[in-house]
Design a protein around this nucleic acid. Structure first.
Lengths: 221, 221
DNA sequence: GAGCCCGTGGCAGTTTGCTGCCACCGGCAC
DNA sequence: GTGCCGGTGGCAGCAAACTGCCACGGGCTC
């Protein structure tokens, strides 16, 4: 039987987390929907930033985390302190921590019954199989996620309905003329949209714009 | 205490797996390094294909799986039978199965001690937190992995040292002239390389090639 | 109504990308 | 040596892309 512990409530979680957070040079890896995976998440991050132990921390969030202005600032701060922050294209409903490739902590899914009690539970384990498997998946998700800068720095705003159709047309590899005809607009207007896209994606060429779009997953929408 | 079971040996694994494999309409999700995650993997896949229950199966492999010619064929066959197959850019050292979002089975890391015994072990659990967490990570990894066709149909062979430099140059968004000068080759040769890349990536335009390259992660090497 | 703004489209001119043709050069076989 | 071959580069011509300019039309205020 492998050891898996259920942690009831945030106090218990914090009791387990703190000694780990205080040990220097530990590798922290975290996937979550937003910055409030658990009540102490922000504080823990701040603690780590102060200790300067951040370079070995990786944080993977879903795009939802960018919705709030203050959250975006918090992310910037984390990045400035050496955290590596990336944004995945999926919701990441459940939070995951992997510490030093040895310990894994997961937020339990919020069931109506549990929510009513108002006490969140967490699952913790040090079983190599569980930790290793989760780490491998995290690595795969991390590898292809977009860097925070790519999301904040470059143009998110570009995607109104029409521009998005232009983007997809570009992705099919047809000529401007064919694409414009297909979308029912003039060649001139089509190229206007393309030019706007290049600006929005901060790209100097169509190729670069394609790379950006591909990395940001804009062509799959 | 949450229930996590260690399965010792392939027979025990098969005993647990089989009833799940035989139930129709189950969602199978699998991340692994290659087709031999466990001894019965190929057979199990074949079983599923025969039952036509494949459309709800997703398989995520590391690029290593493409090394062998027969493996590539096996992948094609799976794809033809409705399996959705994608290739991630990371090694995925540990195999992971998630069945119906309720059960998770992981291959244990192969330790020297265990290897000597010649008996592989697996870890199985139905704890919602573990399954849900792994599922979320899988989803994120899946979302940004490249489709099998993108890897097989298009050109993997393209990436010799020089072509790769051309690719990076393209990614910086400079003009052909500047890029050629920078790489110390003539404009003509540079464009030859670009044209070869377009063919290799099966792209009809530079934009499309950029998207492909971005999705395949070729620009990060 | 006049005047204005904004988005669209046409046109023309320029730049950039793309490619077929040929010439050159180094390596190799004979 | 001659001949062949594969890779390279220059040139020219063409196609595609980019952009500045202006005109037209709808919606708006006044």
């Amino acid at each position: 039987m492998t050891q898996v512990t259920e942690l009831r409530g945030d106090l218990e979680l914090w009791a387990r987390m703190k000694p780990l957070a205080e040990s220097d040079d530990a590798e922290w890896v975290n996937a979550a929907r937003d910055l409030d995976t658990w009540p102490g998440a922000r504080e823990a991050a701040r603690l780590q930033m102060r200790r300067g132990a951040a370079p070995r921390a990786r944080k993977l969030y879903s795009p939802a985390v960018l919705a709030d202005e203050r959250d975006r600032e918090a992310l910037r701060e984390m990045a400035d302190h050496g955290f590596r922050v990336r944004i995945a294209t999926t919701p990441l409903p459940q939070g995951t921590f992997i510490i030093d490739r040895r310990t894994i902590i997961l937020t339990d899914p919020v069931l109506p019954a549990t929510a009513a009690q108002g006490r969140r539970t967490y699952t913790m384990s040090a079983a190599p199989a569980l930790v290793g498997g989760a780490y491998a998946l995290f690595e795969a998700a991390w590898e292809s996620a977009a860097d925070l800068d790519a999301f904040l720095g470059s143009g998110r705003p570009a995607i109104d309905a029409q521009t998005s159709r232009v983007l997809r047309a570009l992705g099919t590899g047809v000529t401007d003329e064919a694409a414009a005809r297909q979308l029912g607009m003039s060649l001139r207007t089509y190229r206007r949209r393309v030019a706007e896209l290049l600006v929005a994606l901060d790209a100097g060429s169509r190729f670069q714009a394609g790379v950006r779009a591909g990395e940001l997953g804009l062509t799959r929408g």
